[in-house]
Design a protein around this nucleic acid. Sequence first.
RNA 1: GCUGCUGUAGCUCAGUGGUAGAGCGUACCCUUGGUAAGGGUAAGGCCGAGAGUUCAAUCCUCUCCAGCAGCACCA
Length: 652
Amino acid sequence: MSITVTFPDGNTRVYPQGTSGMMVAESISKSLAKAAIAIRVNGQLRDLSRPIDEDADIAILRREDAEAVELIRHDCAHVLAEAVQKLYPGTQVTIGPNIENGFFYDFARNEPFTMEDLPGIEAEMRKIIERGDRFEREVWDRDQAIAYFTEKGELYKAELIRDLPETETITIYRQGEWLDLCRGPHMPATKQIGGAFKLMKVAGAYWRGDSSKAMLTRIYGTAWRTQEELDAYLTQIEEAEKRDHRKLGREMDLFHLQDEAQGSVFWHPKGYAIWLALEAYVRRRLRDNGYIEVKTPQLMDSRFWEQSGHWGKYRENMFVVPDVVPNTEEGGRVFKEEPKHFMALKPMNCPAHVQIFKQGIKSYRDLPIRMAEFGCCHRNEAHGALHGLMRVRQFTQDDAHIFCREDQIASESLAFCELLRAMYTDLGFTNMKVRLATRPEKRVGSEESWDYAENALRQALESAGLAYEIAPGDGAFYGPKLEFHILDAIGRSWTCGTLQLDPNLPERLDASYIGEDGARHRPLMLHRAILGSIERFIGIMIENYAGKLPLWLAPVQCVVATITSDADVYAHEVYHKLKAAGLRVELDVRNEKINYKVREHSVAKVPVMFVVGKREAEEEKVAIRRLGSQEQQFDGLSQAVAGLTAECQPPY
RNA sequence: GCUGCUGUAGCUCAGUGGUAGAGCGUACCCUUGGUAAGGGUAAGGCCGAGAGUUCAAUCCUCUCCAGCAGCACCA
């Protein structure tokens, strides 16, 4: 029997049935056989050693191919596991998948690994790779495999196998003496992993991602095809660290956090200047898109939250305040009496917006109502979740709820998508990913209403010309949603915007309007945000721009700095002119050399300096120095002020 | 919340069982210097909080708090 294989270029060759991938590679050329690490058979990646039993489209994967890195990483994880078990006998292996930029392996060990253990493990890994054993694939009997691992004390592995579907073939990969349960494929030998890998960090992780299960110890690693790729990755990590908004926030004096208000931000004048500029921009955009702006209470009675449904489901993450008079007695109890009534800080704005909607009688002619609020919300986030500006307990959403009729969903969604895209473009994010999250398993509402809602959102995306992917089952229990992810300058993705369709809350809170037919109808609600949390969005902006915010958002747009004290009087004049033009400007007349001043304001990421010395004072000019440029530009004072003022205008 | 690591001057970090040090920053003095660090002097610390061991604790042990990295969570 023979088989015909088709190569990517369309050529075909005939081989005896059962020919292995490696044999195919060898039949083509020695060099290919040497470079080959795996084979794609009818789209599926396989070991080179496995026989090909039928006609197939094949492609031989070489180590230098882009996809090879996935195999390198997973092979590396196996080697890591072997190294760990050699150096730390009694450690159980669990799982070791690939992740973005690398891999990890979770181990069960009484004493967790520390960073100090990593160099030793890495050295052992290099020895194993140098030894160069072949990866041998074996098919085992299920019960035999369970017995083997149980007997060996590898209880997690045994559990894994036990939970595999009956139909699954149990495969084992062996490298020398060591073996692991694995689906594969692997490269022919450990040697092909090469040396471009590094163990990065250790961390705890729950067995099977379940916080009620055992805590394992995880070792993260990164692996690449070449040393150059590894170095580039390590450099990129350093870059990301330099951009850390917590570090820049301190250096640029934008905000701080402290123990007494963990998770809530103290905005310094410069940080708040960014906030105000951003908020004013959003407000102009909303105003011109037919939104009305409201402000609703921070603190509301628990029965309000019971009605909205949050009390039952999310109380754990709410700040609850007893509605009783505190005791003022020295050393006494905090409250005079046991609290019976509670209030809660709002975790979201929507129920309050429904209250405003419900005042008076609404007609179908009033819809849509686009109700916006820079809503300050509190959520009692887990301590371990808090992270700078990115995850806080008090945050402000650029929130709005659109109350509309079903036939308005599509046009409102489209308008929202267009507004969102325009705003992201203004803010410097042109790369965006959109996900349409569809009906989850547990849901309310009829199939027809879900069909309608999902279609309306899909239509909006298509009309807006936005590419999207479907996230099946990721919708909220009450309706589908759109998630908008922006990509930052170093390729990280952040979920910011959202559009959620909600027929549920108006029902719960009994909101209605009078339709054309004179009867009462339920409006639909669209929850929507573009920046999401303003705190977090500023954090993202700081990291995206590495602190060098666009002029209109820069906390200090210009510093007027003198070269000698002879120019002090003139510098004051320049400063006041810029201030009068509405710019955020500072004056630096300190007794310091100009080199020093330039350095300091450059480090502080001030985008523009107006440098004035004796010459400029005499000629009524300024020397303009821009951040990151060595050059200077000399302009007359009024021209320079007008020019900079124009440059500092917001994009909208 | 879970696991691990960390907590020393405003910031970044050394250090030691006998109650502390550097650089930057700050104040003052000298210096008036033309585009990324001029020089000097000084001030500045309950060594995260509490308890224990010890003649003696910033250092060792325990508890707590906070930060960091993951995990879990994120209406």
